[in-house]
Structure formats: structure tokens, C-alpha cells
Amino acid sequence: MTGYLPLIIFGVLLNAAAQLALKQGMRQIGYFEFSLQNSSHLFFAVASSPYIIAGLTCYVISVVVWLLVLSRVEVSYAYPLLSIGYIVTAFAGWFLFQESLSPTRWTGIAVICIGVWLVTRSA
């Protein structure tokens, strides 16, 4: 199963890239309220954002990669490795968007790292 670890990580990184692209797209669009009056404006803003389109494209590709993973690896091994995405997006949010990483978040990231290490050791 560990032979498929690069494919799993690729899918996870695509998913994280999707989150980051969507975040950047929404940073450009800005805060909005869901209402019937602004729904058409919002739809066109979202549909024309290159970051939103890139994020959705990354999601589609990551689903294809994930289907490949699931056809080859036990889900009880592969699925916990998705938590690597939490680690990547936390660091990227901190680095790219100047989001805060409190001591509690650092502790959570450390726990996730330990959990990922334990799962990969079980293969």
C-alpha cells in the first residue's frame, strides 16, 4: 500500500490547492449576502473568477485521482491520509493569507502529523 503513497499525496495536495484557490477567489469577490437580489451578480462573479475555476478544476482532478486510489488501496488506509490536507492548508493559509496559527492549532497539527505517521506505519 505504501507504493501508492505518492498518488494519495498528489490527490491530497490537489484538494488543498483547490481550497487555497477558492479562498483567493473569494478574497477577490469579497463578503456577500445570499439573497435573490444579488444572486445573478454573485453567480457571474464566481463563474468568471479564474481562481474559482482553477479551484474547481483541482477538485475534479482530485476526485479522479481519489477514485484511482480507492481502486488500489484500502479505504481505512487512504482516507485518514486526507488529513495531510489540513496540515498543508493551515501552513499555506498562514503563509499566503497571513492567517493566525494559535498554539492550539499548532497542537492540532502536531496530533494530525502523529496520526498520519501511525497510519502510514500500519501498511
Rank of each mutant, 00 (worst) to 15 (best):
F44V: 09
V63H: 10
G11F: 05
R105D: 03
A54C: 11
S122H: 05
T57M: 10
G25M: 03
S40W: 12
L22R: 08
A16G: 10
W94S: 00
S102E: 08
V119A: 04
A17S: 11
L20S: 08
V119C: 07
F43Y: 13
Y86S: 10
S83H: 08
V111I: 14
V116I: 14
L5E: 01
A45V: 02
A92P: 06
G108R: 05
P6V: 06
S40V: 14
E74R: 09
G115A: 00
M1K: 09
W106N: 01
Y31V: 12
R105C: 00
M1Q: 09
V116P: 05
L36E: 12
G3N: 11
L14R: 07
C113D: 02
F44H: 13
Q19E: 11
G108T: 02
A78N: 07
A47V: 09
Q37V: 15
Q28S: 11
L13E: 06
L68I: 08
W66R: 03
S100V: 11
N15H: 15
G25R: 05
S48F: 08
T89A: 01
I114Y: 10
V65G: 05
N15K: 10
L56H: 07
G93N: 13
A21H: 12
T104W: 12
A78E: 05
S122W: 01
W117D: 04
V73Y: 05
A47F: 10
V69W: 01
P50Q: 05
P80M: 00
V69E: 07
W106A: 12
L96D: 02
A16V: 04
F97H: 01
R105A: 10
V69T: 07
V119Q: 15
V119T: 14
I53F: 09
F95H: 00
C113Q: 02
S48C: 13
R72Q: 15
I109D: 04
S122N: 02
V46R: 04
L81G: 07
Y59G: 09
L5N: 05
K23V: 06
L68S: 11
L20G: 06
Q98D: 15
W117R: 07
L96I: 12
C113F: 15
Y4C: 08
G30Y: 04
T107V: 12
I9E: 03
C113I: 10
F34K: 08
R105G: 01
A110L: 12
F44A: 09
A18Q: 14
A16C: 04
V116G: 04
L68V: 08
A17K: 00
L67G: 00
L7D: 06
P80K: 03
I53W: 08
A78R: 03
P80N: 01
T2C: 09
A18W: 06
A78I: 04
V73A: 06
L70R: 04
L20I: 14
I84R: 00
I114D: 05
V46K: 04
S62V: 00
S100D: 11
